[in-house]
């Protein structure tokens, strides 16, 4: 099984030179640590910044400079600040090419649930619904199963939906999967030591396995 950092590391391999990217809170934030240095990409923070830099050193902490997770950050060279309306104009307008976010459930037709557990958790959707409704490409970082072993890759989501037919790829702790436009999780890669049978057993939605499925390769 992959650690959170390994999930982030694998997702980073999907990043392409020249992309504007929005990273969600949690594992997606870790992706920034693994983007190869020879790629020029710009990270968007939906609270109004293009050009997220590393976390600040203690003496550079600025309460007026935070990311969408409310963490203190720095800015890269060439960064730009703007309002929340401008920020979501970029997102809705399709100018942010890649969105990476977490999920509680994904269905085989690409629906995603990640904002609410009725009666339990009422934190709100933040910018997730805007992001999933408009991004060119959406990659989800998630655990394949819940703590009690229930599959989170489902025929249809059981939790309130965040967006419909929007997820393109999933990197879980067990596998890399493509969500096909016609429906179904196409298995692309296995986590080291994880068998196709195990992934099949832990995927409730339709799993498509074609030919030999390679193990993930973490060498770059």
């Amino acid at each position: 099984m992959l650690t959170k950092d390994q999930i982030a590391q694998r997702i980073a391999k999907e990043v392409k030179d020249g992309q504007y990217i929005n990273l969600g809170i949690g594992i997606p934030t870790l992706v920034a640590n693994y983007i190869p240095e020879n790629l020029d990409v710009v990270l968007q923070s939906e609270n109004g910044l293009l050009g997220i830099g590393p976390f600040p050193t203690e003496d550079k902490v600025d309460p007026d400079l935070i990311n969408a997770g409310k963490q203190t950050i720095t800015m890269t060279k060439g960064s730009v600040l703007f309002s929340s309306a401008e920020s979501f104009a970029m997102i809705r307008g399709g100018h942010v090419q890649l969105t990476i976010l977490g999920a509680m459930e994904v269905s085989e037709n690409g629906d995603i649930s990640n904002w609410k557990i009725p009666g339990k958790m009422v934190k709100g959707m933040g910018g997730a619904m805007d992001l999933v409704a408009s991004a060119e490409r959406i990659i989800v970082a998630m655990q394949h199963c819940s703590k009690d072993g229930q599959s989170k890759l489902l025929k249809s989501c059981t939790l309130p939906i965040t967006g419909i037919r929007c997820v393109d790829m999933i990197v879980s702790d067990l596998a890399v999967l493509e969500v096909l436009p016609e429906g179904g999780f196409k298995l692309l890669e296995r986590a080291p030591g994880i068998s196709v049978e195990e992934i099949q057993a832990k995927t409730e939605g339709k799993l498509i396995v074609e030919g030999e499925i390679p193990e993930m390769n973490f060498a770059s």
Partner: peptide, 30 residues
């Protein structure tokens, strides 16, 4: 609870004299 971009745009619309607008955020959700 409303999507963040929708919130920003609803407020922007209020100040700009636009009574309503169409957005993809939230389609298919509650």
């Amino acid at each position: 609870l409303i999507p963040q971009g929708t919130l920003a745009e609803r407020v922007r619309a209020g100040g700009a004299g636009i009574p309503a607008f169409f957005t993809p955020a939230g389609v298919g959700t509650e």
